[in-house]
Structure formats: structure tokens, C-alpha cells
Design a protein around this nucleic acid. Sequence first.
DNA 1: TCCTTCATTGGAACCGCTTCCAGTCGACCA
DNA 2: TGGTCGACTGGAAGCGGTTCCAATGAAGGA
Lengths: 340, 340
Amino acid sequence: MEAVPTTPAKIADVAARAGVGIATVSRVLNERGSVAAATRERVLEAIRVLEYRPSSVAQALSLKRTLVIGVVLPFLTEASPIERVRGVVTALASSPYDIALYDVESADRQQRAFRLLADAHRTDGLLVVSLIPPDEEVRRLSAGSIPCVLIDAHHDRLPSVVIDDIGGGELATRYLLDLGHRRIAFIGDKPADPFRRQSSRDRTIGYERALTAASIPVRRDYVREGTQSRHLARNIAEELLRLPEPPSAVFAASDVQALGVLEAARGLGIDVPEQLSVIGFDDIEIASYVGLTTVRQPLFESGRRGAELLLQALLGQPAPVHVETLPLDLVVRGTTRPPR
Amino acid sequence: MEAVPTTPAKIADVAARAGVGIATVSRVLNERGSVAAATRERVLEAIRVLEYRPSSVAQALSLKRTLVIGVVLPFLTEASPIERVRGVVTALASSPYDIALYDVESADRQQRAFRLLADAHRTDGLLVVSLIPPDEEVRRLSAGSIPCVLIDAHHDRLPSVVIDDIGGGELATRYLLDLGHRRIAFIGDKPADPFRRQSSRDRTIGYERALTAASIPVRRDYVREGTQSRHLARNIAEELLRLPEPPSAVFAASDVQALGVLEAARGLGIDVPEQLSVIGFDDIEIASYVGLTTVRQPLFESGRRGAELLLQALLGQPAPVHVETLPLDLVVRGTTRPPR
DNA sequence: TCCTTCATTGGAACCGCTTCCAGTCGACCA
DNA sequence: TGGTCGACTGGAAGCGGTTCCAATGAAGGA
């Protein structure tokens, strides 16, 4: 029985105990260079006895890499970023990299986060979710040569994994059109900080495009970009449904908002899908539970794929600065049907 | 215009440019010791020009602290751990600490995670969520004197933030009893790895206690500990509802399982709450949407509180090794009522 | 048998920052 | 006016690893 060491063993302790130099211990540790079998054994024994583990901080300083990947994302609150993080976690699970999480709720904190990450060499690579890093920070990143992949965002000089939000907006709207709807309203996010990716905005564009393609004029009073919350979406939906000429279908830029629409309809005694069709976007878990028709985007997959690209870059095969677009699926459930 | 430096500035570069010693730069940086105003200005100017940021890795090595807090948790998949992490993130947002995330899906990976954290000095402190660290790892942690707080778990030698699961089980069951129900079934998790906290098990105990206190025998066929998933819960609920003498109420150990019960009832044409009362546990977001009666536990708060305790310990006021029990609330919504 | 080659090995420099320990020097006190 | 004090300042020693480079010695080739 060895006495419990009061302080954790360092490499010099191991070297001393094994009667070798520290360089040799390091060689054994990293399986680099050649070490005589007998020597190796003695070193391993010393390591075991002393319960030695190399300090990752010291390694990081010496090797100039931290084995940490930073994940910057807004609003851990919401369901979709979480799902993306899950993908990231999964992809990184079998890699040697740890994950450092940076939740930013404001442009201000985003600045701080990027500054931290690009400058302080805390991380070897960066995954940025649904955020558009300022040019200045992109410059810093590439100056520090720390690779960065965007997920659900786009920048000229960075590889990214995205979906086609415009196409998705068209997909949803066209589906409603194909069902025969002509009075189709849209509920989306209100324009947020400029640093946040505006997927909702693009979906609006897709919506308008589909209508235009079908020669249906876009009605101002049918397009409501005012909220992200279910609660507010509900209020907005109520307004829409009380219009002299209410829509027969609503396309919500997110499932969360679509849930608000469903609540509004329920509250007003309007039957879905009999009197009103509702389609969402994202396909979060709740959607399948309530039977919401929606456009499914591969959230988990986006995180996984982004992490993969980053790992590649870290391995020295820098991902080309290109945009990888993930496919969307129309998931038809019970909240849509042809108008009466 | 300065030429863009090919390599990030280090403290020596700043010192050289300002014409001072590195010690002085460090003093300015950390506002420690005394530096003449004029000197300080020159240093700050050099820092600005060179866009210098101290390397946190080097600082960590020198100071023996990393400013990183590790969060170990199982199954990022589930809603409740996420909500807890949100609380942690919030509490740590205004602190200088970063968050490193360790998702463990198996006892094996848990071992690895703890080993990593306790030995490699990657983190200054640890938050463990819904996991029971093995004694061996607890020993390592205290040997390395890195503070650790458990959230939703318990260990003799570590401070922790928990809820009273037994009490919660009683609360839910007693509520159903008070409504007049006598045939009350229970659906819970199947026993998992020993390293995972078994909150479901305790809720079962509470359930049994409440029944016993009301002099109602616990029926074997009414207690089903078999799943965590909604899907399986649905199957189990269907079996229950098809019994010759079906329960008039079901207490599910989690909201997710309660949703499965609701689906089962819907599928069998059994009206909730008219013919069947259902109560869940947790109060996840979806619960309010579907109007599920449930026992609310402060998930977000648990994370926040755990992080606070850890910060205190990090500040040198080690939290006493005690258990902090957070309050539970009965949230009555639309899925419960007296039996016919 | 002498020289070259190569497997092994240890020493020391370096990664970038903090801080102890002296050393300088002008100001103030007796 | 000499001495003491204290504000400033710089050098150098770590922190705990990795790795270049030189040294050692035995084996293989001529």
C-alpha cells in the first residue's frame, strides 16, 4: 500500500520513481520514439503506482492545442439549438475533443464569446450555431488559424451547414396551395438582432415566392412577422382569424408558433383542420405528439455534420469554404387538408 | 496601419514594444502591484496596437486554475437535463467560468469523464447531474481538491441539490386519492444502470406509501416499471386499460410517460379525464400545452442553485456537505378529476 | 578488428504567464 | 545631509508537459 500522495504526481515524479529521464516517460506516454521494452514496463509501473495522469493544461501549452471545441449558440432555451447540440455531442463523442459551451443571448455577449475564443486560444476549433460572426471576428479566427464551421448560418469565408429556408417556405406554401388553399397567412419571427441568422425571414420570402408563382397576390394583412413565442403567436393568430376575410390556412415559421396558432383556433372554436389548416416548420418533438403538419429540417444532423466538417479541418483537411445544404421533408400529419 | 502580425502577440512582445519588463505588463494586466501611470499608459497602448490577449492556457498553467467548470450529465436527449443545464448556464453567465459539457451515455463513459476531470485538472469544479459518482472518483476529486456539487443525485460526501421524489410520489398519489380514486396504477422507468440516479424508483415508493397510508393495498398488476419512452409507456398503458378491472387513474413517473398514457387512452377511445385521470411528473414544457396535471419540479432552479453552490465553494466558502431539497408543486390542469 | 549505424536515453530549451526577490531611485525625516 | 522608506521595475524561477539534440554503447559491415 502506497501512502496517498498529497499532491498529484507530475511527470518528474514518474521519471524519478522509474529511474529514467522525463523525456523517456513522455515517450512512453505518447508512444512516440523508441523505448526499450524493459524501460517501458518500469515507467508504466511507476505511472500505475503514482496514479499519474498528464496535465492537459500543460500539454495544451506545450503542444499549442487544447483538445477543446467551442460551441457558440444563442438561446439554449429553444428546442432546436439543443437538438443541434445533441448532434454535435454525438459526433464528438468518439473524438478526443471536449466541448465548451457558450450561450450568448445578446450581440454583446457574442462579441465577448468570440473574442475569448479566437484570442485566448482556449479552443482548437469553433462551431457557431444560428449566429453570424462579425467580419472582424472571422478575421481574428483565421489569423489565429482556428477553424470554424457555421451551422444554420452563412458567411462568405467560412464553411457552413444550412438548410434552404427559402425553399422550405416555398415547400410549405406550395403544399397548402396544392391542397386548394388560396387565403394563406404567414406568421414569423420579428426581425431580431442583425447578428442572428434570420431563417424566418427567408421562409417569408419562400412563402411570397410560392404565392407569386401561383399568381396569388401577397396580402399585407396576412403576413405577420411579430414573434417567436407561442403566446404571442396565439394573439397574432387570433387577430388573423378575426379578420373580415380570415385565412383558410396558416403557415407558421416554426412549430412553436404553429402551436400558438392551434391554441388560438381552439380558443375561438375553429376546428383544425376542418375549418383551418396549419403547417409549421422544424418538426420538433412536440409536433409529432400533437399531429402537426410541418416541414422537417434535420436539426440533429446539422450538428453532427458541422462537427464532422470541423474534425476534418482539425485533421488537416480543411473543409472547402462551401455551403452544405441539408434536405427538407414535408411531414404531413393531421392539421392540414383541402379547404371546404 | 500596423502590419498584420503573423503570430499572435505574447506578453514579451508587449513588453518589448512598451519598453518595459514582462513583469510590468503582467501587473498592468492584472491590476496588481503598483505601476506608474505613464508606464501603464504605454503598456496599454502596446496592448492595443498588438491586439494582445493573454493566453488562458498559459494562465491556467501558471495559476493552477482553468476557469472552467465541468458539467457531467447523462442523456442530453431528454428534456429535463437540458432544462437543468439552462439553469447552470444562467448562473454561470456572469461568472468568469466557462462550461465544459460531458455527456455520458454509459457507465463506461462516465468513468472516463470523471477520470478526465479529476485527474487532468481540466476543470476547477464539477457539476454532476442525475448521476452518482463512484466512491473512487469522489476520492480522486477531493484528493485533487476540486469541488463538486451534485444535482438531482446524492452522495454522502458531496453537497447536493435534489427534490424529494418519495414525497413527490406521495403528493401525486394522494391527490388522486383525495379526488376519490381507488384504482390507481403507476407507470415508471425500468431500473437502469446502478450509476444513474433512480428518481423513478423513489416515486414508486412514494406511490406505495400513499396507498398504504390510505389503507389501500398495492396491486402488483398496477405497478409497471418498464420504460422511459413515450412509445413503450403507451403500450404499457394499453395493457393496463385492458385489464378486467382497469385503473381509474394513472400516475406516471414522468410527463413523457404520461403523454404515452394519454395516447393510449385516445387510441382506445377512453376519455380523459372523464373516464381516466392521468398525472405526470416534472412539468416539462409540453405538459402545459396538452393540459397535463403534474407534479412540478424546479428543473431550471436546480441547475442554477447547484451552480451557485459550486461558485461559493470556488470562492473559498465550501458548501457544507449537505442536501438541499427543492420544493415540489402540484400543478392541476385538465387530465384529472374525480372518478365517475 | 575498426568504423558506421542506429536504437536508447537524458538534458535542456521552450510554450506564455505569474510572481518572488532584489535593485533603483527620489522623497521625506531627523 | 545621511539614512530609511516605499513606489517602481526587471530578472528569473517556476507551472508541467514536449521535443530537439547530443551522447552512449552495442551491433553490423568491410
